[in-house]
Write a protein that binds this DNA or RNA. Structure first.
Length: 555
RNA sequence: GCCCCGGUAGCUCAGCUGGAUAGAGCAGAGGACUUCUAAGCCUAAGGUCGCAGGUUCGAACCCUGCCCGGGGUACCA
């Protein structure tokens, strides 16, 4: 359609212009273009006159049921019912295939997942699936700290809790991934508190920090500290997997900092020689460019320790080495936006071939309904698993079938995070999350189950309407169903999953309107309507699938 | 100070590559049906799109300035 318009415009006015069409409100037709408005100035004629000239040409093609000019000069196009129906069977446009690395979730070892991780894990999982569904190869990665001060605080806390450097006493901790993670977290809180309150502990912890780094540089599996560290580090990794299983998300390959650090340090040495990094006040820094508003950042501290800048460079180099990515998408909290700009700028300076290959998406802070911020200070976090459990409890009260509880719980949680545009802070309200009404996961799941039950109830075979004229309610539903591919490709291209939520909700509303007006079972148009209902259920299921949400047959 | 992100209905948010009366959900008001899952449908009400200029035939959307909230601003990430 766009191509036809481009040709017509060229023939009429000798102007080449990019034509876009949009989906107007039903009263105006199926497609609309404002090309006449854009041309009016250049052609020197009133917009409506331009529109009429183009509309006349469009009518000559006989491809459309109606072409009209409205408002200031919009050209509205109405398709024949058969065209609208055949569009439903059109496959999604294929794109060229690339190799992607998508990095998200990124929990630190020795810590628990909090609500921010929950949000980011769900969003990352959806984005990865969208990109994969579009035909690309996707490698999911997650990057986090298995060395560093937070680990030292934690190990200090373990020693205090166990009453000494006694790795054998770890056996007394309840041997489930979540219990172990909880225990580690308690130790961290203890260590972090001691670090603040006791100068003595602070000295010990700083010393421990160096020891832990050395466990990687001079492999040690024997000492008590080493046993404590390697055992509980593995507990953390096991806990990550257990958590992802609870969420029913794809696992990512975890890249610990200890692995990227040496790679980053090699890069630092190399770039220092090249002059891309400079020594300053005993540290190695990347000098920011004031004109580009890039901060100066430290890559190696005056104590010779790598900062996250170096580790982040390391992870980029590692991912490039292991996956040879063509595109890299990184998702972090939006507090890292400025910081990451510098890392990307440095990476592109060090390796110009990376320019333009990396995208940084940021998620906002998860806030409670009352606007307060969830804090991770001293372990005062809202744990992700608590959120899951609270929602699950509420859902079990409302859903009678026990086997559906997990599906609906995850449907509610994933949907509530997916429906916001990425970037801004989001408001998290438990009551709203478990609400089954309105724009929610369970609403869509229920809408799907309802449609399935209608199909199941009929004894007829659904039949796709060939030349049958559609009544207005049917037509509106078909029209909306036809927008699925647009919604998905928009979500994929913009890396914005919320477009899918919006679409699915609008589709369900459209169907409910249809369903109020249109008897299915027992009606003379039963077979045709059955086909529509089935098609609708399939579309909802597909959309929910992209969001990583189950679509139960019955609810 | 400088930079980044946000400010749209009472609340939570869509809409932002400029276009037709600014849309949903929740909350609140009214209604229909009482036959396919009502977790639904319909109607009305609710908005100086933070403020002020500018560009344009046309601005919630682009530009400038300001106000408010959050974040960042060399050894935390």
């Amino acid at each position: 359609m766009e191509a036809t318009l481009v040709t017509i415009v060229h023939e009429l006015f000798g102007i080449d212009i990019a034509v876009t069409t949009s989906r107007p409100e039903p009263q105006f037709g199926d497609f609309s273009t404002n090309v006449a408005l854009q041309l009016a100035g250049r052609v020197g004629k009133p917009p409506r006159e331009v529109a009429e000239l183009i509309a006349a040409k469009l009518r000559e093609t006989n491809n459309y049921a109606d072409v009209s000019v409205a408002g200031p000069g919009f050209i509205n196009i109405t398709l024949a019912d058969s065209t609208l129906l055949s569009a439903l069977s059109a496959p999604a446009p294929s794109t060229e295939s690339h190799t992607y690395v998508i990095e998200y979730s990124c929990p630190n070892a020795f810590k628990e997942f909090h609500t921010g991780h929950l949000y980011q894990t769900i969003i990352g999982d959806i984005i990865a699936r969208l990109v994969e569904t579009a035909g690309h190869t996707v490698h999911r990665t997650s990057f986090g700290g298995d060395v560093g001060l937070h680990v030292a605080k934690c190990i200090w806390g373990m020693i205090a809790t166990l009453g000494g450097e006694l790795p054998e006493k770890l056996a007394s901790v309840e041997a489930t991934p979540f219990a172990r993670a909880r225990w580690i977290s308690d130790c961290y809180v203890r260590g972090a508190g001691a670090y603040e309150e006791s100068d003595e502990a602070k000295v010990v912890i700083n010393e421990l920090n160096k020891t832990i780094y050395s466990l990687h540089t001079q492999p040690d599996n024997q000492s008590a500290i080493a046993q404590l560290y390697w055992t509980t580090r593995q507990w953390s990794f096991d806990y990550f997997d257990a958590f992802y299983d609870v969420l029913h998300v794809d696992h990512m390959h975890y890249i610990p900092e200890s692995e990227t650090m040496p790679i980053g340090m090699d890069v630092v040495r190399e770039q220092l020689e090249k002059g891309n990094l400079k020594e300053s006040e005993g540290a190695v820094v990347f000098e920011g460019d004031e004109t580009k508003h890039l901060h100066t950042r430290v890559f190696v501290t005056s104590k010779g320790l790598p900062t996250y800048e170096t580790k982040d460079i390391g992870v980029i180099w590692l991912e490039r080495r292991d996956y040879n990515f063509e595109k890299r998408i990184l998702i972090t909290g939006n507090d890292q936006q400025e910081y990451m700009r510098v890392v990307f700028a440095a990476a592109e300076l060090f390796r110009p071939e990376l320019t333009g290959e990396m995208t940084h998406l940021t998620n906002g802070t998860v806030r409670f309904g009352d606007g307060s911020k969830m804090s991770s200070r001293l372990g005062n976090v809202t744990r992700a698993i608590d959120v899951f459990n609270v929602v699950r409890e509420k859902v079990s009260e409302l859903v009678s079938d026990e086997t559906l509880v997990d599906s609906v719980t995850l449907g509610a949680i994933k949907y509530v995070f997916a429906k916001y545009r990425l970037g801004g802070d989001i408001s998290f309200d438990i009551d709203e999350t478990i609400s089954l009404a309105g724009n929610s996961g369970p609403y869509i799941q229920y809408a799907h189950a309802r449609a399935r039950s209608i199909v199941a109830k009929s004894t007829l075979e659904p039949s796709m309407p060939e030349d049958a004229a559609l009544d207005p309610a049917e037509r509106n539903l078909v029209r909306k169903l036809g927008e699925y591919n647009d919604a998905v490709s928009r979500a994929t291209n913009e890396l914005a999953p919320h477009h899918i939520c919006n679409y699915l909700f609008e589709l369900a509303q459209e169907f409910n309107r249809f369903y109020e007006l249109s008897r299915v079972i027992g009606h003379e148009r039963e077979a045709l309507r059955l086909w529509l209902v089935g098609r609708y259920a399939d579309t909802l299921a597909a959309g929910l699938g992209l969001l990583g949400i189950d679509a139960p047959e019955n609810m």
